[in-house]
Design a binder for these strands. Structure first.
Lengths: 354, 354
DNA sequence: GGGCGGCTCTGAATCGATTCATACCGCGCT
DNA sequence: AGCGCGGTATGAATCGATTCAGAGCCGCCC
């Protein structure tokens, strides 16, 4: 059925070594033999067996990318960036989805290890499992994606999420909001929040505290923790916000990601709460659907594809001799859109609270 | 560095065959030897080399999923369904993205063939390349996803897109719309449209024709072909719609997918065209973001995860003896939401054309 | 004519897990 | 004592591509 290099050799009347040379170092083979071999390959429909090649080589021609949520466009954009670099290097990409479940992460890492991938790009689940450390001990390069490295002896590509959280909160404060919600905290949630989310939270807290110190005594922060960082989670949290009596209800929210923000937006609209006039929303990640929402979402933008590209580059570099571990941190930027476009400018008037 | 089964055997004081048995048929090994071997494995941090295993076995423990656009949530939902089935079978999934480019499709299929995957699930690019046929000739099971099989000798999981298109158009006609646009056609586009899109188009056309025959003489269809089936494509097409003088401008659109619909929605809102009052929109696929849009999108819903699940099941079944090729066709359902909720019911009044 | 270098090609050894025919052990039965 | 049998363990052969030391050949120069 499937023919091997040996069949090709037989057909072309040469040795297996020669066939291999045609495949891998054609310049070593005379033109005539080369065409003879290529003809045989075509006639037999020969396809190289990667397993055999890998066995000999000791490692595969692929890298793994492990993400938290394949349904989150943020990660597909990161994947695009990764793919670009990986493709260019002639490697292939194995995309794995964990749904933020440690057990799935573990299983995927085990499979990748068995496949002897050249390296792994991973956005780990909340707790950094020791499976990752174990992989690294086995000599498999690992680069953390959108996550800070716990130690300096490894590569990681991150975003300054404290800054991002601060930008979001300051934006709302500047527009006159005083009662602000952070949606995506970990309070009361079963498992710990992702560090990325903790950072965003910290940034928001810092901004609100600073505002209070600067004289906005009434600035206050409410934290809501949806079950997960999805559109459904956002809807659920928004419903809770709506349940708060108008006098105490936050007038704006910073969401831990855009999926949540879209859910919040949807639920607000559904309940007739006007966005941004009655409730302003800031998302995070600036996924394409944020701008495409009918009330375009103000969002904290990070270079999604660049994150992926950079991570992939670092991973490929790990294999090389003089590699130095790096932890680049990208700076997020706030993109203001309509979802926060009401209210007056800085200081002064804090009128019409809902 | 990496230890092999031989090292484990040495350490445990048994033969390699025994170690292999511990790994694959532990019931053949006595309890004492088994624990001795397992201890050795743990101590050495041994990880089985998949390449070697695959080489011997002749095929890998993975299947490939090749999609048109990983950034389209429709495909990530399909992927989820596939993953579920594939995981349960103890296989792993290799996810490949083609961006509807035949060259990329070809490259991915070649890589999958070299990896000796157990099968391939694919939503092919517009033209059915012969690479797919070639794969099948080599004995690799292939199941088409969201695409009808050209012949009965293969498996394919599809949706009745003619019906879907008709449902969408009938819905708009019932709500009093007469000048309808189909956004996503192939007219004037460089490459042929996807068959799925052609079907949707055909369904819309059929509905409009039927309406005309039924007495709605003024029912008419305009076709717009964006460069690609993305949010950006939708925006571009919407801009063109807005350019049409109000008297001739369509009052509603059926979009080839939800990404386009979201783009259209966004552009309409940006230009102050009220949705649905001045312009109604029907999307296709019913991705999560359709419902989450602030003007929730009426959309033609198909069981996305089920498509994936079913396709994966058929693929796994292909390996089995009595396999019979099947081409299940799912029936789409129209989910009415606000983006089409203006205008009066059936027949009568066709008033206020923007 | 002998020797040497350059160009081709050969074929055996190798990677690591699996498989299977074979061997071994102890025990009960005749 | 001999036979057979279930239960275990062995180790050589195998999968297919790659690699590399070495062989064969040709032409050229001294």
């Amino acid at each position: 059925m499937t023919s091997s290099i040996r069949d090709v050799a037989g057909r072309a009347g040469v040795s297996v070594g020669t066939v291999s040379n045609v495949l891998n170092r054609p310049e070593l083979v005379s033109a005539t033999t080369r065409t003879r071999v290529l003809d045989a390959i075509a006639e037999l429909g020969f396809v190289r067996n990667e397993s055999a090649r890998q066995l000999r080589a000791g490692s595969s021609r692929s890298v793994g990318l492990v993400v938290l949520d394949i349904a989150n466009p943020f990660f597909t954009d990161v994947a695009r960036g990764v793919e670009e670099v990986v493709d260019a290097a002639g490697l292939s990409l194995i995309l794995c989805n964990t749904d933020d479940r440690p057990a799935r992460e573990k299983a995927h890492l085990a499979a990748l290890a068995e496949q002897r991938v050249q390296g792994v790009l991973i956005t780990p689940t909340a707790e950094l499992s020791d499976d990752i450390a174990a992989l690294r001990e086995r000599g498999v390069p690992v680069v953390l994606v959108d996550r800070r490295a716990p130690t300096a002896d490894q590569c990681a590509v991150a975003t300054d999420d404290v800054l991002g959280g601060r930008l979001a909160a300051e934006h709302l404060l500047e527009r006159g909001h005083r009662r602000i919600a952070f949606i995506g905290g970990s309070a009361g949630s079963s498992h710990p929040a992702l560090p990325q989310v903790q950072e965003r939270h910290a940034g928001v807290t810092a901004a609100v505290d600073a505002a209070r110190r600067a004289g906005m005594d009434d600035a206050e922060l409410t934290v809501l923790s949806p079950a997960d960082l999805t559109v459904a989670g956002g809807r659920e949290a928004a419903a809770r916000v709506i349940g708060i009596p108008a006098a105490r209800r936050p007038t704006a929210a910073v969401c831990a990601n855009d999926l949540i923000a879209l859910g919040v937006l949807q639920e607000m609209v559904r309940h007739g709460v006007r966005v941004p006039d009655e409730f302003a929303i800031v998302g995070y990640d600036d996924i394409e659907f944020a701008a495409a929402a009918a009330v375009p979402l103000t969002s904290v933008s990070k270079p999604r594809a660049d994150l992926g590209r950079r991570a992939a580059e670092l991973l490929l570099d790990e294999g090389r001799p003089g590699h130095v571990h790096q932890q680049p941190v990208f700076e997020p930027v706030l993109i203001a859109r309509e979802s926060t476009m009401a209210r007056r400018h800085p200081g002064s008037d804090r009128g019409a609270s809902a």
